[in-house]
């Protein structure tokens, strides 16, 4: 009987590595998804350098920097929540997960105001104001909405995934002995952070 139990434990242990590898494989597909857009961005920036330079002035560096800090902090809190559950501090882990979700929401709220600001200025695809500008500026804003939009969608999905993990932790599905789900959700959140690390200088810091 104890032999069977031991086998079960060994099997679960191996699954944890498999689960993390599975998530990494999924993250590679995300790399392809965003990679294609980064290819497009780099070519258009190369062929329309002056227009990209002018268009980027419309973006507020301060808000961008603030949002970067929010996302970096949320990455830390989710990493800490995993460390907390490893130490057996379930309540601290739940608290840190909730903080991560709140920071994710704060990021999206900022993004909403930023987008609304640009839309009010007539800088959205198809607007007469934008169409009167140079072709490179139209491309810049097209890429801006597509790339930050897709990234924002990832933040929303990530926050929902972490929310599910928080429910699991409260219900006791995620425990100090079995926290792979939380670890894997964390990997996804960190990838979203890495994508923003590249989006931020490429859109906000063109000089």
């Amino acid at each position: 009987m104890s032999d069977i139990n031991e086998q079960v434990v060994t099997h679960a242990h191996k699954d944890a590595i498999g689960a993390r590898m599975g998530m990494w494989l999924f993250l590679f597909t995300e790399l392809l998804l965003f990679g294609g857009m980064f290819f497009l961005y780099s070519v258009y920036r190369f062929t329309h350098q002056q227009d990209f330079h002018i268009a980027a002035k419309e973006l507020n560096t301060l808000i961008g920097t603030f949002n970067t800090a929010i996302l970096l902090t949320s990455s830390m809190t989710i990493a800490l929540s995993i460390a907390a559950i490893q130490k057996g501090k379930v309540k601290l882990s739940i608290f840190l997960q909730v903080v991560t979700i709140l920071l994710g929401i704060a990021f999206i709220v900022n993004k909403y105001f930023e987008w609304m600001h640009h839309i009010n200025l007539g800088l959205y695809p198809g607007a007469d104001e934008l169409l009167s500008k140079g072709p490179g500026q139209i491309l810049f804003f097209g890429l801006y909405y597509t790339m930050t939009g897709l990234h924002g969608l990832h933040v929303i999905v990530g926050a929902c995934v972490i929310g599910t993990m928080t429910t699991f932790t409260i219900k006791g599905t995620i425990t100090p002995d079995s926290y792979t789900k939380l670890e894997v959700a964390g990997l996804y959140w960190h990838l979203v952070d890495i994508i923003w690390i590249f989006l931020f200088p490429l859109f906000y810091l063109i000089t």
């Binding site: 830390m76 990997l187 690390i197």
Partner: peptide
Amino acid sequence: IASIKSYLVLTIFMH
């Protein structure tokens, strides 16, 4: 700089 930041996230945060 973005690459250095990503390296830190990959190695430490993502274990």
